[in-house]
Simulated assay, not measured.
Amino acid sequence: MAFSFTKLQMPDPADALKGREDELIVENRHAVKNVPIKAPFPEGSEKILFGLGCFWGAERKFWQQPGVYTTAVGYSAGYTPNPTYEEVCSGLTGHNEVVLVVFDPNATSLEKLLKVFWESHNPTQGMRQGNDRGTQYRSGIYYFNDAQRELAEQTKTAYQSALNEKNIGEITTEILPASAFYYAETYHQQYLHKNPGGYCGLGGTGVCYADGA
């Protein structure tokens, strides 16, 4: 499939699609865990957003992790309010396909989740992940507090050192404050549970992140 050059670079905010005021109607129930995918979440839980390619396979990686309360897929780090999947795929919203991960910090650690993040995709590929090309497939960590930012930066530095040993290139992962998260359409939520034979384009580098968690 041919991809236009515009889909491989962020649009100018002035040129982004206008979107809409109303939120998409999304079923508030995790198909695997049978818990809500929208706030309020249990007291003491933490959340973070990860972008690592097609969000179908990415979400499954995280709902399988011990200590994760719930997950959801959606769109973030862009410009268009309440975008649709088709609009995000146009490259004209600036959004990334991301996974919202809500976890119990007493049952797991952010470093363990970051280990999953780094090892589950190739973070050196810019605006693509494997054969999936476009701004919505870029690698990103979107944090909610300074402690998350610092740990994300620390693990990025550590993983870069591991990649350097294998001559794999420079990490292109963006690490930014979390902005508005727009839930994707219901059929995208827990997609690979609902469609066990569905597409999953995730592929790591084969390089392990040596965590201390």
Score class of each variant (00 low, 15 high):
1 M>H: 12
4 S>C: 06
4 S>A: 11
4 S>I: 02
5 F>Q: 14
7 K>T: 14
7 K>P: 02
11 P>Y: 08
12 D>W: 00
13 P>K: 01
13 P>R: 01
13 P>Y: 09
14 A>K: 13
18 K>H: 11
20 R>N: 07
22 D>V: 14
23 E>V: 11
26 V>T: 09
27 E>A: 14
28 N>C: 08
34 N>V: 05
39 A>H: 09
39 A>I: 01
39 A>P: 15
39 A>V: 05
41 F>N: 10
46 E>R: 12
46 E>N: 03
48 I>N: 07
49 L>T: 09
51 G>I: 05
51 G>Q: 01
55 F>P: 01
59 E>Y: 08
60 R>Q: 15
61 K>P: 03
61 K>I: 15
68 V>Y: 09
71 T>C: 05
72 A>Y: 12
72 A>W: 12
77 A>R: 10
80 T>F: 12
85 Y>I: 02
89 C>A: 12
89 C>F: 09
93 T>M: 11
98 V>I: 11
100 L>H: 09
100 L>R: 15
106 N>S: 14
106 N>P: 00
109 S>G: 14
110 L>I: 10
111 E>N: 07
113 L>I: 06
118 W>V: 04
119 E>M: 03
122 N>P: 03
123 P>M: 06
126 G>P: 06
126 G>H: 09
130 G>P: 08
131 N>P: 08
133 R>N: 08
135 T>N: 09
140 G>E: 03
145 N>H: 14
145 N>T: 05
148 Q>R: 07
148 Q>I: 06
150 E>I: 02
150 E>Y: 02
152 A>G: 12
155 T>S: 14
155 T>A: 01
159 Y>M: 04
161 S>N: 12
162 A>V: 05
164 N>Y: 00
164 N>V: 01
166 K>S: 12
171 I>Y: 03
175 I>E: 02
178 A>Y: 02
178 A>H: 01
180 A>D: 15
181 F>N: 10
182 Y>S: 05
185 E>V: 05
189 Q>L: 10
191 Y>G: 00
193 H>D: 11
194 K>R: 12
196 P>W: 14
197 G>M: 03
197 G>I: 00
201 G>A: 15
202 L>M: 07
204 G>V: 10
207 V>E: 01
208 C>G: 00
211 D>W: 00
212 G>Q: 14
